[in-house]
Design a protein around this nucleic acid. Structure first.
Length: 419
RNA sequence: GUGGGAGUAGCUCAGCCCGGUUAGAGCGCCUGGUUGUGGCCCAGGAGGCCGGGGGUUCAAAUCCCCUCUCUCACCCCA
């Protein structure tokens, strides 16, 4: 049995890679206008970074991390998400210290989670993430959501609607969790097995349960937003007003909860059609306490991640081709009709490349028929054929494969003609 | 981690239920039809330890068991 790629990993071949190039190029263009710079952090970190930031009890930390001991016995983990490493890096380089300083930064790269693969889910996947530090204003929340909507539109995915919710301040969340636990304690036996677990791990999640019987039991629970402290509610209201002002389409989803413990206040996600059941292409939120939690100065911040594999699915579902996939102008396939022609053909090939055009040559003597067939398949515009008669006069037959027109051209003039 | 579906030619798949000739099709590939002219058409050809291991049988792609992989869904997430 030959060696296979590990489960949940894929090889991205050239046709597929074009999508990733498009998504990354577009991100750079859009994010630049909003003042973002790029950061590249390691793909592994000390395990503690993730367990402390994401939360010990979360699915990600408790069962989905690629964790191993390095040669010195220190526990390291392939990054399951991008925010914590960015925060770590900015603290470490002391870029968050200055009063009032704002930092806008994005990254793109692979993430790793040990899960059962399915449509839109892999063990190694690729995200583009954005992080905005140092701005507590609700306008910051709205700006990030607006920028991401703009990004999706720039990719050709059209107008999208982002689902939003607010978890409130850390204190609000804590109080609400306690309240839900208390209310559901008596009903525990009637809850579905998943909800019994949720009550312990993350009570907010029960509200999103899909089991109708459970939903009936929750009818009397106070809503999260109603239980929130006043400043939290004011922030959420202001975010929605700002989104309205910026013309961003959104939809309030009271059940929306994210899988990281560090989120506070605004959380959001965007789902698209055609992806199967894992249809969120983007998710994020505010994390005002994280920087301090990781040893930095108190810094309000928010961020989001985009799942590139899922965006590819969405693009394909909408029949959006990656940019730069149109055939190039004036590319040439060189055909050598005998061993003695290969040297001249190789020289011709390089002379065409030297003027910036695509030139293909397989360094193989071919029949004219198979040579032209290969040229046709390669979707080039011209074929340059060198046989014995052409070689004798240092020329080739330059054939336009679209029109069928051909003419004899000296080898040293071909590059000039296709330039 | 739990549950469904699927692994047969480079690709997409038929054959499996009801074991038994040389395991098929379409597409792709190669060659020829045209002494040096592609695409379309026609003819021919190459290419498979039927995912792996074990078992039943005179005989297994086909039946049984194990295993690996892919896939979809749940949980959760990008």
């Amino acid at each position: 049995m030959p060696i296979q790629a590990p489960r949940g990993t894929v090889d991205i071949l050239p046709d597929e890679a074009a999508y990733f190039q498009t998504m990354e190029d577009t991100a750079r263009q859009v994010f630049l206008r909003y003042g973002y710079g790029e950061i590249r952090t390691p793909i592994f970190e000390f395990t503690e970074l993730f367990s402390r930031s994401i939360g010990e009890e979360t699915d990600i930390v408790s069962k989905e991390m690629y964790t191993f001991a390095d040669r010195r016995g220190r526990s390291v983990t392939l990054r399951p998400e991008g925010t914590a490493p960015v925060v770590r890096a900015l603290i470490e380089r002391n870029l968050l210290g200055q009063q009032g300083a704002q930092v806008k930064i994005y990254y793109a790269g692979p993430m790793f989670r040990y899960e059962r693969p399915q449509a839109g889910r892999q063990r190694q996947f690729t995200t583009i993430g954005v992080e905005f530090f140092g701005c507590a204003s609700p306008w910051a929340d709205a700006e990030v959501i607006a920028m991401l909507s703009e990004y999706l539109e720039a990719l050709g995915l059209g107008k999208t609607t982002t689902r939003i919710n607010s978890l409130g301040s850390a204190a609000s969340q804590k109080a609400y969790n306690a309240q839900v636990r208390r209310s559901l304690a008596a009903l525990k036996d009637r809850l579905c097995p998943d909800c019994r677990r949720r009550v312990e791990i993350n009570p907010l999640r029960v509200l999103d349960c899909k089991v109708p019987e459970d939903q009936a039991l929750f009818a009397d629970l106070p809503s999260l937003v109603d239980s929130m402290d006043e400043p939290s509610r004011a922030h959420y209201d202001a975010v929605r007003r700002a989104l309205d002002r910026l013309g961003v389409a959104y939809e309030e989803r009271p059940g929306l909860v994210r899988g990281f413990d560090y989120y506070t206040h605004t959380v959001f996600e965007t789902c698209l059609a055609g992806l199967g059941s894992q249809d969120a292409v983007l998710g994020g939120g505010r994390y005002d306490g994280l920087v301090e939690e990781l040893g930095g100065p108190p810094t309000p911040a928010l961020g989001a991640g985009l799942g590139l594999e899922r965006l590819v699915l969405a693009m394909k579902a909408m029949k959006i081709a990656p940019s730069g996939s149109a055939p190039e102008e004036k590319s040439v396939c060189i055909v050598a009709l005998g061993e003695e022609c290969i040297e001249a053909a190789a020289g011709l090939t390089q002379s065409i490349r030297a003027v910036g055009r695509r030139a293909l040559f397989d360094y193989t003597a071919r029949s004219i028929k198979s040579g032209l067939r290969a040229a046709n398949r390669a979707e080039v515009e011209f074929s340059a054929i060198i046989g014995g008669t052409e070689l004798a006069e240092s020329a080739c037959v330059l054939k336009n494969l679209r029109t069928g027109e051909e003419k004899r051209v000296p080898l040293d003039q071909v590059a000039g003609l296709v330039k």
